[in-house]
């Protein structure tokens, strides 16, 4: 699946199988929210982000309206991905919105800003995926903070 934000001219590519897997993992925690870290790398021209894997948190709290994750015990997994060829690294985060739309809440926007502006994060533009779902439908929302504005990626018809 390829998504683009036409306004900023940047894209994301994510394997359908990985998307399916994230949805499956997220829904297993119904009615609570759940999420994790996104792993990937950039294309040579830095115009496209390839999202390839996920790392799930070892410690987290979740309710139907909250997902709080910690970063304890995941260092080794990040290092392992970083040693691969091509290198893979932390590119963002994902979480679910059970019975709701993939629209960022105030808390989400705050977290997105914290992460984007964190000195510990090497990349300037982490990606945030929200998986909104109910009994009949699942929708994805990919967001980025670029030059202090939030942008949403859209699927582009080929």
């Amino acid at each position: 699946m390829i998504l683009t934000n036409i306004e900023i001219g940047l894209s994301i590519e994510i394997d359908d199988k990985l998307v399916g897997n994230l949805i499956y993992i997220g829904k297993k925690h119904y009615p609570n929210e759940f999420g994790g870290f996104l792993i990937g790398n950039y294309s040579d021209d830095f115009k496209k982000l390839n999202i390839t894997d996920t790392i799930l948190p070892n410690r987290y709290k979740s309710t139907p309206f909250l997902f709080e994750r910690e970063n304890i015990g995941v260092d080794e997994q990040f290092e392992k991905f970083y040693k691969e060829n091509p290198q893979k690294f932390y590119v963002g985060e994902w979480h679910t919105h059970p019975n709701n739309l993939p629209i960022p809440s105030n808390m989400d926007i705050k977290a997105m800003n914290n992460i984007t502006n964190s000195k510990e994060v090497a990349i300037q533009n982490p990606i945030f995926l929200i998986i909104g779902y109910n009994k009949i439908k699942t929708e994805l929302g990919f967001y980025i903070i670029f030059k202090n504005k939030i942008y949403k990626y859209e699927t582009v018809n080929k």
Binding site: L10, D75, F78, M107, N114, K119, E120, V121, I123, N125
Partner: peptide, 23 residues
Amino acid sequence: EENKYQVKGSGFFTIPPKNERFG
């Protein structure tokens, strides 16, 4: 515009921030 994904320093390696809450 010629926008690109950017890196803050010289490398890509990151351990994500300690605690984050989403809602």
